[in-house]
């Protein structure tokens, strides 16, 4: 929430405008997290992902959405113990993340896992069968350990038609989430709404604007997750 704190009063307003449609589709039910709220006034989230999760550095104010999410939740729940662990490692496929699921997720004992993957798999063409298999396995393991799971939708970016399989991978993710009854965090809708809002120099997207979009998007994505989480489970 760097922007909000530094006096960007418009941010909350802007973000609310951008959220519109995305917020309507994100009404997750997280039983373990809801119980932890009630019983221990606490919340622990692990975000498992690649470079979009990782953000810009190791410190907590790194511009990543997990860092923004921690801030957002702590602001909303000042008396609660809020922990958001960023387990993003750039360049990783879903399988790489599955390999570290035990250590990086299960052993952390969070109430909620946010799994942000698929982009790298699309880039290296893992194959949708293998990807689905890996996702299923990871979700099953997390659920078996009593952890709530949410999957992150893919990012939106200009000129996706560069990657003809992008939407195929995306619809695989969405239908798998639906079949396994796992909420999807509608990042794609949010980024798209932001990009098409006219608030950024798109679609010609000079470099700095794409970066500014990413930065603002990470903050607004945090608001989206936080709102969905709190409104439906707290």
């Amino acid at each position: 929430m760097v922007a909000a704190e530094s006096g960007d009063v418009d941010f909350a307003y802007e973000c609310r405008n951008w959220l519109g449609k995305a917020e309507e589709t994100f009404k997750p039910s997280f039983p373990t997290t809801a119980r932890e709220f009630r019983e221990h006034n606490a919340l622990k989230i692990v975000v498992l992902g690649s470079s979009t999760t990782e953000g810009a550095g190791p410190d907590s104010n790194d511009g990543s959405y997990p860092a923004a999410l921690a801030q957002e939740l702590q602001d909303a729940l000042p008396t609660y113990k809020v922990v958001v662990v960023n387990k993003g490692i750039g360049g990783q496929t879903a399988y790489d993340m599955l390999q570290r699921l035990d250590e990086d997720v299960l052993e952390e004992r969070p109430t909620l896992l946010i799994w942000d993957t698929v982009v790298m798999d699309m880039l290296v063409n893992t194959g949708r069968d293998r990807l689905a298999r890996v996702l299923r396995k990871g979700i099953e393991q997390a659920k078996a350990a009593g952890i709530d799971v949410a999957l992150m939708d893919l990012p939106w970016f200009p000129r996706q038609e560069r990657y003809p399989h992008y939407q195929q991978y995306r619809s695989m993710l969405l239908s798998l989430a639906q079949r396994m009854n796992v909420p999807i965090i509608p990042r794609y809708e949010l980024m798209k709404a932001m990009a098409l809002s006219g608030d950024f120099a798109l679609p010609e997207f000079a470099g700095p604007d794409m970066l500014r979009l990413t930065e603002k998007h990470n903050q607004c994505l945090a608001v989206l997750i936080s709102n969905g989480l709190l409104k439906n489970n707290h």
């Binding site: 690649s50 470079s51 990782e54 810009a56 550095g57 750039g90 360049g91 982009v119 790298m120 880039l123 990012p155 970016f157 200009p158 000129r159 560069r162 990657y163 997207f205 000079a206 470099g207 794409m210 990413t214």
Partner: peptide, 19 residues
């Protein structure tokens, strides 16, 4: 710099060099 495609950062995972 020519295409502004953010995914090229991911192609060889060059993110650490940027940040």
């Amino acid at each position: 710099s020519k295409t502004q495609n953010p995914l090229y950062v991911e192609v060889i995972n060059i993110q650490p060099f940027l940040i």
